[in-house]
């Protein structure tokens, strides 16, 4: 069956991308070089965009690439450059109590994996969904029932723009 073949390909794709993302994410939180961390973050974000495509969400994937990899990463790199005299690895990027994070993260992960396994078991995603979400549907949603959050979001962005200017301004 063609669909089954495709699914195998998708599964392989998912596996590869997932491994890259997890490795990248681990490097983001362990590397001692801030610029390296930012670059690893790029791989994670790009991987996420690829996963969105697998999930049949092209519009979100494109937005992810534009906003995250395009704008947010540039911001991060600028932030790094503006706040650090020297680009390179640093000794003390971690807290004294960094090990506190391990049990908490492991506990959270265990809880979530148990819950997910329990809740969704081996439920399949619909291989051939009845309604594929397209960009038009998303825009109908945004300017229809979800107009109010959209407005709130616009205000958040406006406030963030003004706030960032006020905060970062030299005076």
């Amino acid at each position: 069956m063609l669909a089954a073949d495709l699914l195998v390909a998708q599964n392989i794709g998912f596996g590869i991308i997932a491994v890259i993302m997890v490795v990248g994410a681990l490097r983001v939180v362990t590397t001692s070089n801030v610029v390296h961390a930012a670059l690893w973050l790029v791989t994670v974000l790009a991987g996420a965009a690829a996963q969105y495509v697998l999930l049949a969400a092209e519009f979100v994937a494109v937005t992810q690439v534009l906003v995250y990899i395009g704008a947010v990463m540039v911001l991060f790199l600028f932030g790094t450059m503006l706040t650090r005299a020297r680009i390179g690895s640093e000794k003390e990027v971690n807290n004294k109590n960094w090990f506190m994070g391990v049990p908490i993260a492991v506990l959270l992960l265990a809880t979530m994996l148990i819950a997910l396994n329990d809740g969704f078991g081996s439920e399949e995603l619909p291989a051939d969904p009845d309604t594929l979400v397209n960009t038009q549907m998303i825009s109908d949603q945004i300017f229809g029932p979800y107009l109010l959050p959209f407005w709130a979001l616009s205000f958040v962005l406006l406030a963030a723009v003004i706030g960032a200017i006020v905060l970062a301004r030299r005076d």
Partner: peptide
């Protein structure tokens, strides 16, 4: 800030665990 974060997520983890145990 980090300690606040640890407290927050720790509390969330414990809360989630309790929910999971109750519901299974």
């Amino acid at each position: 800030v980090n300690q606040y974060g640890a407290l927050l997520f720790g509390a969330a983890a414990i809360g989630a665990l309790v929910l999971v145990i109750i519901n299974t």
